[in-house]
């Protein structure tokens, strides 16, 4: 059940090896790599559109969680194991876990969360203030990064009651901060920055979560 084994000359062998290498490596670099991994060393993937095959499925209108980090591939994410929440677990008489009723731990919304990335330029000695309008108990993830040190005051004002009353989350001097808020009450939650760098500074502010909108407080009007 065998075809006769070939007897090729040295020249033919070397030639077939080289051509196979050229074809094989070419195939991998021109088509397979862009199609499978979106890496396109030659630009041929973009030219022919095969690089589109490796793009993750995009769901319209869903804002991304804005984060100043490299995205991980969805393949890696499969292997992240999330431990079940052991505390506060409520079980019924059959020993089955019951849904949480505690709104501090889980809260379902009708709308998808929002996300925004805002670039803010602050002149020398200038002050600006950005606030997220949030309902009590809602969650916001945030980060900001400046190209020089700023004075910051991270605080909140209530919607109702004494307008001079405010809650201070954090204050200090620095180039960046990141974290999360669970709004202690409905109102404005956000950041006051004063440029103490002696030169114009640019801040990237990223927010993601449940909020109505991000507003800029008019500091000149406030001062009057």
């Amino acid at each position: 059940m065998s075809t006769p084994q070939p007897s090729l000359s040295t020249r033919q062998l070397v030639l077939s090896l080289l051509v196979a290498m050229l074809l094989g490596v070419g195939l991998a670099m021109l088509i397979v790599l862009p199609a499978e991994k979106g890496e396109d060393p030659t630009g041929f993937g973009a030219l022919t559109g095969v690089d589109k095959l490796s793009e993750p499925e995009v769901v319209d209108e869903i804002p991304l969680v804005l984060a100043p980090v490299e995205p991980v591939s969805n393949e890696d994410a499969l292997y992240i194991r999330i431990d079940p929440i052991k505390s506060k677990a409520v079980v019924n008489e059959f020993g089955e876990p019951q849904p949480f009723v505690d709104g501090a731990n889980i809260r379902q919304h009708e709308q998808h969360y929002k996300g925004q990335l805002i670039e803010i330029k602050i002149d020398t000695d200038e002050q600006v203030e950005y606030k997220a309008l949030m309902e009590e108990g809602d969650v916001l993830l945030y980060f900001w990064e400046a190209d020089a040190e700023l004075y910051f005051d991270f605080h909140a004002h209530q919607d109702t009651g004494d307008p001079n009353f405010f809650t201070r989350y954090a204050e200090g001097e620095g180039k960046s901060d990141h974290g999360s808020i669970v709004a202690p009450y409905s109102g404005q939650h956000g950041w006051y920055w004063l440029n103490i760098a002696g030169k114009p500074v640019t801040v990237q502010l990223g927010v993601s979560g449940y909020y109505d909108e991000i507003i800029e407080i008019d500091m000149k009007a406030e001062a009057e």
């Binding site: 084994q5 070939p6 090729l8 077939s16 094989g24 991998a28």
Partner: peptide
């Protein structure tokens, strides 16, 4: 023998593609 050569050439090409990838 030509068929054998062609097929093994194709297998070899596949091997190069796998390795390069």
């Amino acid at each position: 023998t030509m068929v054998g050569i062609s097929i093994n050439f194709l297998i070899m090409t596949g091997g190069f593609a796998l390795t390069a990838y």
